[in-house]
Amino acid sequence: MPQWIEIVVRSFAIIIGLFLITKLLGKKQLSKLSFFEYIVGITVGDIAGTLSMDRDLNLTNGVTSILVWSLFPLVTSQISLRNKKFRDFVEGNATVFVRDGKIMEHNLKKEKYTIDEFLEQLRKKDIFSVDDIEFATLESNGDLSVLLKKEKQPATYGDLHPDIPDQIEPQTVIMDGEILDEPLSQIGLNRAWLDAELEKRNVLLDNVFLAQVNAWGEMSVDLYNDHLKAAPFKEKILTLVTLEKCISDFSFLSVTASSAENRSSYQSAMTSLEELSRKLRPLLKG
């Protein structure tokens, strides 16, 4: 067998083996790997590269070495899932750098962190004053996590509006022109509803590249042909117009009703609808 063909065969075999090993080890991102797992990855890659190029090396022995190096972190991760003491020993614990606004100098020295390195990491998180920090910890993977003092935290929507409904992630209901039944069922909808929504927009299913439904049951559509546009969806505007019409009708009835009791009832209904219209107007006009 020519030398280059043997190298190609060995390389393809090792690439397939490494792919299977990475699928077996899981989906940890590189930044989430422990130091030990990082070293194992480098070593396995070095063995695989040398094995694919050096014809004098025994392929069986090389594959055995790769399997040993690869299976060891798999075994340790399985033990870590079941034993916290072993997990702490292998992966380490988070180290507190700031507690109650006070810097823990001995912990900085323990992790071989200079104050300059600590301040640099804070600046990368747009924090320029240590006095703004309530709590900070160095995670086992080397990331720095920081909790700002309450008065220094940016305001969120929940701070301004505490009584808000739970947010539900949008569901993709059409992809590449194919209806996805599982996401539809998760939000309590079906194909009949989807067909009706497409018909309102005068869009054919085959023309839809992507369609998503948000928490309020609103569907957004992206078409294959970017020059085409889905018909504008006027249901919100019609709802707002109907609401305003009801307010106008109740206003008229509150004046023309024969009895004071009926006029009071119509006036109360009109007031309730006006309050509802005030709350819904930003959503219905959006």
Rank of each mutant, 00 (worst) to 15 (best):
T43F: 13
L119Q: 06
G188W: 12
L180Y: 07
W4D: 08
T114H: 03
L20W: 06
D116P: 00
F252L: 10
F118I: 03
R82S: 06
P73L: 02
R55D: 09
D56Y: 11
L228P: 02
K124A: 07
L71I: 07
V90N: 01
E178L: 11
I168V: 15
L30C: 00
A192C: 04
H227I: 13
V8I: 14
P232I: 03
T271A: 15
R281Q: 11
S70C: 03
I168R: 14
P154M: 10
S272L: 14
I115L: 13
D195K: 15
L33Y: 01
S34V: 00
C246T: 13
I7Y: 03
G45M: 05
F252A: 12
A13T: 14
D88P: 02
V96I: 15
I5W: 09
V75H: 00
F209V: 06
Y113A: 08
S77D: 07
T256K: 14
S31N: 09
Q212G: 00
S264G: 10
L240I: 07
F118W: 04
P154W: 07
F19N: 04
T76V: 11
F19K: 01
Q153W: 04
T271I: 12
T64C: 07
V40K: 01
K23D: 00
K27L: 04
T60G: 09
N83H: 07
K112L: 10
I237P: 00
G188V: 11
N61I: 07
I42A: 07
L59M: 11
E169V: 14
L144T: 06
R10A: 06
K285R: 13
V208H: 05
N225Q: 11
T114G: 10
E274T: 14
I66V: 04
E151C: 05
A211Q: 04
S264L: 14
P162L: 11
K28R: 13
L210K: 10
G26S: 03
M104S: 01
E105H: 11
I103G: 05
P162A: 10
D222F: 15
D46H: 09
N107L: 05
R55F: 14
V90P: 02
S77N: 09
E105Q: 12
V68T: 08
N207G: 09
F135L: 06
E120P: 01
L228T: 07
L160E: 07
V213P: 01
K150A: 11
Q3H: 13
S52H: 05
L180W: 04
M1N: 12
T239G: 10
E117Q: 15
S80N: 01
R99A: 05
D195G: 09
F89S: 05
M104G: 02
A231T: 13
E275A: 15
I133T: 00
T95P: 00
D159H: 13
M1C: 12
V221P: 00
F35C: 02
Y38S: 03
M1K: 09
L57D: 04
L119N: 09
L189Y: 06
K200C: 06
E6F: 06
D163L: 15
Y38T: 08
Q171H: 09
N61D: 13
S31C: 01
A13N: 06
N107G: 06
N190I: 08
E169N: 13
W216T: 13
M53F: 12
